[in-house]
Amino acid sequence: MDLTLRVWRQPSPDAPGSFETYPAEDIDEHASLLEMLDIVNDRLTEQGVEPIAFDSDCREGICGTCGVMVDGKAHGPMENTAACQVHLFNYRDGDTITLEPWRARGFPLRKDLIVDRSAFDEIISAGGYVSVNTGSAPEANLTPVDKGTADLAFDAAACIGCGACVAACPNGAAHLFTSAKLSQLNMLPQGQPERYARTQRMVTIMEEYFGSCTNYGECQAACPQDISIDFIAMMNKDYRKSKFRNRRAS
């Protein structure tokens, strides 16, 4: 099928950027958006044009490396789908597709469609783990977890950290990401000892880079893993409690 691409091109973080238009002709409708970019890039390289820079890795919706605004929607038009899994048969012959990078203060642009998401890593380093003494692995069945809690924690753990929530949020907030990473630990017994210290530290780093939540719900709609904003409410509650507990402790 024949498509037209409008792509944000920006050679470096400080250089000015602009939209460029490229033809994407004669492409198999079973190609994904990213495969289409591969093909277009091959052609651009042959013409001596710098290929379009974009991120990807697994190409099966599980790693969270890909991420781009497609026609004003994070990860494109499909629900609960990462950009790498959006196939061209969702488009009609002759369509124009606009590709823009994630735009947020916390995600500085590196090149073309690539942004630097290391602010997410900083949030994780602030507490997105459970401290354990190394040694032999503990017996798993010693810590019972009821099914409902386990399922909910698993829903939170489905977050692939792609940043679509930040990209979609009009405030550039990372509440959905942070709350998912908090909830997957805070809901389980293993996460309890560090629960409130973790919450406070991760929220503090989050607020440094990202905006605040006005409960629009855009993040939930954009999330390729369908993470619920219920987790944001849980984070809010734990943060409030953390303030009381840490006050008592100090």
Binding site: D71, E100, G106, G172, A173, Y216, A221
Partner: peptide, 19 residues
């Protein structure tokens, strides 16, 4: 004020779903 700082650049094209 803070949210404006955290989202300095606008998308040229934005299609809201949930708002």
């Amino acid at each position: 004020l803070d949210n404006r700082r955290k989202r300095p650049a606008k998308y040229e094209k934005r299609d809201y779903v949930a708002v």
